[in-house]
Each structure stands twice: as structure tokens, then as C-alpha cells.
Design a protein around this nucleic acid. Sequence first.
DNA 1: TTGTAGGCGTTATCAC
DNA 2: GTGATAACGCCTACAA
Lengths: 333, 333
Amino acid sequence: MNPPTVEDVARAAGVSRQTVSNVLNAPQRVRPETRQRVEAAIEQLGYRPNRVAQSLRAATSRMIGYRIEPMHPHALGSMHDRLLHALAEAGRAADHHLLLFTADDPDDEVTNVDALHRAGAIDGVMIYGIQSDDPRPPALRQLRIPFAAFGRTGADAHAWVDIDNAAGTAAAVEHLVTRGHRRIAFLGYPEGVAVGDRRAEGWRTTLDKHGLLDGSRHLDLRGEDSLANGARLAEALLEHPTPPTAVVAATDTLAAGVLRTVRQRHARLAVVGFDDTPTAGALDLSSVRQPIEAVGHAMIRALLGPAVSVAQDEPAGQLLAPELIVRASSALH
Amino acid sequence: MNPPTVEDVARAAGVSRQTVSNVLNAPQRVRPETRQRVEAAIEQLGYRPNRVAQSLRAATSRMIGYRIEPMHPHALGSMHDRLLHALAEAGRAADHHLLLFTADDPDDEVTNVDALHRAGAIDGVMIYGIQSDDPRPPALRQLRIPFAAFGRTGADAHAWVDIDNAAGTAAAVEHLVTRGHRRIAFLGYPEGVAVGDRRAEGWRTTLDKHGLLDGSRHLDLRGEDSLANGARLAEALLEHPTPPTAVVAATDTLAAGVLRTVRQRHARLAVVGFDDTPTAGALDLSSVRQPIEAVGHAMIRALLGPAVSVAQDEPAGQLLAPELIVRASSALH
DNA sequence: TTGTAGGCGTTATCAC
DNA sequence: GTGATAACGCCTACAA
């Protein structure tokens, strides 16, 4: 009735526990015929090594913590779905699983991770949504808890994986320039948000490269990441004496707001969003897509690969290229 | 350097391991002054019971499996985000965590759950997206693996939680009838999908109740759950000799397709979707919202509450009421 | 090549 | 009230 143990297998195969263990962990040390007998017994009994016992013995849980956040009310879709699946899939190959936990804020997150880690429930943790002065990297570092981050601050004293945000908006601008646009606006987060700043930077440098920055410098608007705000900012843009003919938005949420205004006013304004959320497809919105599956694999590698990386002081960073998905919102103008 | 154990605490407090254990698990059996001494030592050393050891000892992992599926390409947003957070939050209160795993299909899911369960990594599993002849409930039942399902088949020989899908579309129809609509169409999944059938049923019975069914019976269209299909079906509806003035869609995806057609043709057609995905907000689409947080709590209760429920043959089901969110897509006509 | 012994950290049982 | 003993299932020396 209870799941079989090594003991049971050993008895069934007429050998000792250790031989069974050897068959599993050091097959070459066991005579072929004995091995086959043991393997037959394993098969027949449906034996599976008990992970908990393995963990206790090895002082390793093969579990990775991941904080699941409540969905942001304004968001059009988070990365959770895709990132979680990518991480789970990548972890599977390394025989690791994700353990989900919740937290009230970044400090609470560290507290919970620490508790989980000290309890032996997780070997390390994945963090994301890194802010400029994020308390988590230094705290985890000091607690000597292995972690990998999706995103970076700039002072990257830890393992991180990020997408090249600047390259994303740069691709958007290139695309719009190719289609003949000369005045291209940018809608983004308030300054100081690392991700937002990088996306703004890609827009700025690319315009500059084409000698279009002077004509667009006044078209750089920032604000809260909500649909309503995107709509409002779009109105402001359209009422400008020299309105833009295209907009690069830092998020699909802002871009969706722009589209709403465009449709209400029957205005002509090309729009490119960022994140390629499901909504982008529904709105026929061009958007910059993040290679989340690759991010997941890179994060697992970053966390599990160098087993001693915690002690080392060499940070391992990896930058992945996003991809522009062109749809009607930027192709019909 | 290593995390402290009971042994360390005992030494620090000048008692034996068992006394420490007693302080934690049976405080009343320990003299107050001894207890305080032990508690002080625990505090000072920052001791946390090792979960892995507890699991081994108790033959219980306090882990619940959850299959994370890749996002459906057509979907506008899955329930993963909200459901996962709800489950994690509810599980937290019961000192349980979620363990994520992947699988290729339902059969593979059962295989993986079985492996995880036999390995002692999970105590039970949450399943969702139940189909009419879903292989998972009977298989899990036979394997004696505790589980709770989000959704039901009709033959509910297991613990389930579901939202009242029929009540959702019924509310949508009531709303539209109140606003004066007489010909109300339904767009849904192909027949045979349990969820789709219930949503269709709510539409039908409510129309019937208002004596409107005869005028709308021909307005019942089914097909693949994609935006493109929603748009196509909407065109078919609009070209009908007696076109509907309103549509109830079984999903936001289909509803988004309808909206696309409506906007392209500048048609007048009220639309209500289902699921209240983030996209619904972006499109100003009225939609039926599922109380996912409540679902999460109910599922945890269903799984953890009756510790012996596996053996019992009395199924425990719970039906939760959805809520209609009214937006411009149905309010302006 | 195979078997024996001990311990990972916890807790329940049973003496004292 | 407190402490010794044993056991959960596994693995890694070590011995035979």
C-alpha cells in the first residue's frame, strides 16, 4: 500500500539496499545481470526514489522559489504566464521544480525567501521586476541565498538575465522611419524606472542617428502606466502644433490608450507598443516581443549552472534580443 | 554557518532535543521557565524547523502540484495568473505551497503527477480545464492521489469547484434585455465542451424566459475560440436578414473578434464577453468576471479540508457566482 | 562486485 | 517535566 522503498526493491531482487542504490547512482559498479534483476524489480514495484529523503540526505531540495504577484490592475497581461512556463520547462530538464510563494512587498519577499531557504524548502530563488534601488539583490547576497534576476539595475553584482530594451524601441523607431515617419513620439514610464529609461534611450539614440531628434525632442512624454493615461497623453500629442505621425510606447497598456484616442478622433497616428501582450494581437497593435522562453532557460542556467557562483564575485549577465512584431497599427500609415 | 538544528537549540538552552521539539509541538507539556529559555535560544539562533526533515518524518510534503500550461496562442489571457496567486495565497494560510510542473497532455499530466506523488514531492494536485471525458479524475482517483478540480464534467465523483457559467450568460442576457434588445445572438465553443454548453444554456433559458427564444434560435453560432473566428461569425450574423442587435460571446476572445467586425463595418451591435480578461478592459468590452480568488480558496479547502475524503465516496462540489462587468460595448446602444 | 553501518533533522513513544 | 531511543528513506564511505 505504501510506496515501495529501496528496501522493498532489494528484497524483491534478492540483494541488499546498497546494490539497489548503486544500480541507480553508479550503474557501472554493478554486474550487468544483477543490475537487470534489480531493474526488473524496480519496474515491477514501480519504485521511485523518495525525493524528500534524497533532499534530506543531500541537503538540497531541488526547488526554486518564485514569488507570484497579484496581477496589476492596469496591466494587460503579465509575464507570469510565459515566464513561469518557461522556467518550469527549463527547470524540468535540470530536475528542478518551482515553488510558488506570495509576499506583500520586496522586503517581505526577502523575509519569506529566507524562511523558505532556512527551512530547506528551496535552494534558491528567481526574482524579477528589478528596480533601481531594489533591496532584494543585496539582501539575498548577504543571506547567501542563490538567485537569478530577470532585469538589472546597472550595478549588476549578481547573476541576471535581461532583454535589450533599448534595442526593442530602437527597432520600433527604425521600422517607423523606414515607413517615412519623421516625427516620432515616445510615451513612457516616469524617469527613474530602469526599464523605462532604457526604452526611452533606444528611442532617443535611434532618432538621433537619423537626425530626427531635434524635431521630436518635445514629443517625449512620461506618466503612469495605464490605459487612461495613454489616451490622455495621446490627446496632448495630437493637439501639439507639430503633432507626431507615429508613437512608440513603452508598454502595450499605454499603446492601447493611444489607440483608443486615435479611434475616437479618427486620427492618423502609427503606434508601436511593447511586450506583445495578448491584447496587442486583439488590437492589431504592433509590439516588441520579449523572448521569454529564452529568458527562462537563461535564468535556470544562471542559477543552477555555476554551483559556487554565490561565493564568486564575478557577476554573470546575459542580454537577449527582443523582436518587433509588425501589425496594422504601424503598417497601414 | 549551516542552519541551526534542534540539536543546536537544545545545546544553547541546556536541554535535550526532545524538549525543544516539545516546546514547538506541545508547549503545554513543558514548564514555562524552560519554555522561555528554549524560545530565547530559538530566537537567538534564528532556528527554523527543517521542512524536508519534517516531511520525511510525517510522510507529507505540504506541497500541491499544479500543471502550468503554455499559453494558448489565441487566448487573450489565461486564468493562470489569477488562479495561481489565489491558490498560493490560500495555501499559505494552510502552510502549503504550490509546486509547478509541466506536461504534454492530460495523460502525461497524470503520469507526472503520479511520479511526483510517489516521490513524495506532492501530497495532491489541482487540476483545471476539465473536459467531458477527462481522463484525469478517474485516473487520479484510482491512483488514490488527492485532487481538487476547477470545473466539472457532470458526473462529479470528486471534489470540484466551478463557477456558475449558465448564471453568467444569463446575467449577460438579462442585462441586454433590460436595455431593450430583443434579438440576442450567442457565439460559443463547438458543442460538447462542458463549459461552452453551460454558457449556451444560460443564454437559451434566459431568452426563453423572456419569450425571445423563437426570434433568436437561429442566432446560435459555434466555432473555434479565436479572434478571427469571432470576427467571421459576427459578419455572418450581420448579414442575416434579421440580424441581432446584441451578442453574448462565450469568451472575450470571440467577443474581441466581434468588436473588430463591428468597428470595421461601423455596425451597431452590443457585445458581452466572458472571463473579463485584461483585454476586455482595453476594448471597453462588457464581460462576465469569474471570482477566481474565491475559487482558489474553495479549491484549497476542498483539497485540504477533509483529510480522508479520498476514501469517501461523497463528492464535494461548490458552485460560485460570477459577476457581470458592464462597459461601453453593451452600454452605449 | 556486494554488503554493513551510520547519519541527514525531525518527532512520537516511552521510560524516568 | 524531561530525556533517551527509534524510525521516516536515502546515500556515501568503508569493509568484506
